[in-house]
Simulated scan of single mutants.
Amino acid sequence: MTGQRLFLPLLILVGGGLGLATPADAHTSISGVGLFPNGLLHPVAVPQHLLLLIGIGLWMGRRQDRQIPPLLAALNAGLVVGYAATIWIDLTQITSLTLAAMTLIAGTLLAVNRPLPSLLNVSVFALAGLCVGLDSKPEALKANETLLLGFGIWIGVNIIALNIMALSAKLQHPIAVIGIRIAGSWLIAMSLILLAFELR
């Protein structure tokens, strides 16, 4: 399984990043810990990011093994591009809406449980990564601090997506498949609540 092969290198990178971690100050989201741990925990600390990663992780786990590397590559490419773009632009308000819309799409895909063309699949994952990256704008950090925070975010996103994917791939029993479809319907409901909250 692709997720299992990639998990060990991710753990090694996490350990290295923790060794490089610097004390955090006021511009990080969790005070008292370094920039790398802040980045690592960022996808968990932001509910919109976590919901979207759960959705695409579950969807990725339902795909064939050969389909997973392009989806993971698209997610990471979108994430890197989006995070890099925050140096020049701030689209936080727009990406909050887009994150909810992407979660709605992921939940719908899970609930309907029908395969998509490869290009459309890759596009969904690239947009998901782009939205998470754009919504992770660091606050007034130096270049090396921005990179360290971004490295943590990248590791955190991949750990969540790969572990949810591995869990989803193991759930092959018909009842488990129904459970995943129900989870998709919950994601739809939560994304609609988020959309209503953002548009109020």
Score class of each variant (00 low, 15 high):
1 M>G: 13
4 Q>E: 11
6 L>V: 10
8 L>G: 00
8 L>C: 01
9 P>L: 10
9 P>E: 11
13 L>E: 01
13 L>W: 02
13 L>G: 13
15 G>F: 09
15 G>R: 00
16 G>H: 02
17 G>E: 04
17 G>H: 02
19 G>I: 06
20 L>C: 12
20 L>M: 15
20 L>P: 05
22 T>I: 14
22 T>W: 05
23 P>T: 06
24 A>P: 05
25 D>F: 08
26 A>Y: 04
28 T>P: 00
28 T>C: 03
30 I>W: 10
30 I>V: 15
32 G>E: 01
35 L>D: 06
35 L>Y: 14
37 P>M: 04
37 P>N: 06
38 N>I: 06
40 L>T: 07
41 L>T: 07
42 H>M: 05
42 H>F: 11
43 P>W: 02
46 V>N: 11
46 V>E: 08
52 L>H: 06
52 L>P: 07
56 I>E: 04
56 I>P: 02
57 G>M: 05
57 G>N: 05
58 L>N: 08
58 L>T: 09
59 W>P: 00
60 M>V: 08
61 G>Y: 03
61 G>D: 07
62 R>S: 14
65 D>W: 04
67 Q>Y: 07
69 P>S: 13
70 P>A: 13
72 L>M: 14
75 L>I: 09
76 N>M: 14
78 G>V: 08
81 V>Q: 03
81 V>H: 01
82 G>H: 07
86 T>L: 03
88 W>Q: 07
89 I>P: 00
89 I>E: 02
90 D>Q: 07
91 L>S: 06
91 L>D: 01
95 T>L: 12
101 A>E: 02
105 I>S: 12
106 A>R: 08
106 A>F: 07
107 G>K: 09
107 G>C: 11
109 L>N: 12
110 L>N: 08
113 N>E: 12
114 R>E: 13
116 L>M: 14
117 P>D: 09
119 L>C: 02
121 N>L: 06
123 S>F: 11
123 S>E: 03
127 L>P: 00
127 L>D: 01
132 V>H: 15
133 G>V: 10
135 D>C: 00
136 S>P: 09
139 E>N: 12
141 L>A: 13
144 N>G: 02
145 E>R: 09
146 T>A: 10
146 T>Q: 11
148 L>Q: 13
149 L>R: 03
149 L>V: 05
149 L>I: 05
149 L>S: 04
149 L>M: 12
149 L>A: 08
155 I>V: 15
156 G>Q: 02
156 G>H: 01
158 N>W: 00
158 N>L: 13
158 N>S: 13
159 I>P: 00
159 I>T: 08
159 I>R: 00
162 L>F: 01
164 I>R: 05
164 I>C: 06
165 M>R: 13
166 A>C: 01
167 L>P: 01
167 L>F: 15
172 Q>E: 15
173 H>D: 15
173 H>F: 10
173 H>Q: 14
175 I>E: 13
178 I>H: 09
178 I>E: 07
180 I>D: 04
181 R>M: 15
181 R>F: 10
181 R>D: 10
181 R>Y: 07
181 R>V: 09
182 I>R: 09
182 I>V: 15
185 S>Q: 10
185 S>K: 04
185 S>M: 14
188 I>H: 03
189 A>H: 03
189 A>L: 15
190 M>Y: 14
190 M>F: 15
190 M>A: 12
192 L>H: 03
192 L>K: 03
193 I>E: 05
195 L>S: 11
196 A>N: 12
196 A>W: 11
196 A>H: 08
197 F>K: 13
199 L>P: 00
200 R>Y: 12
200 R>P: 01
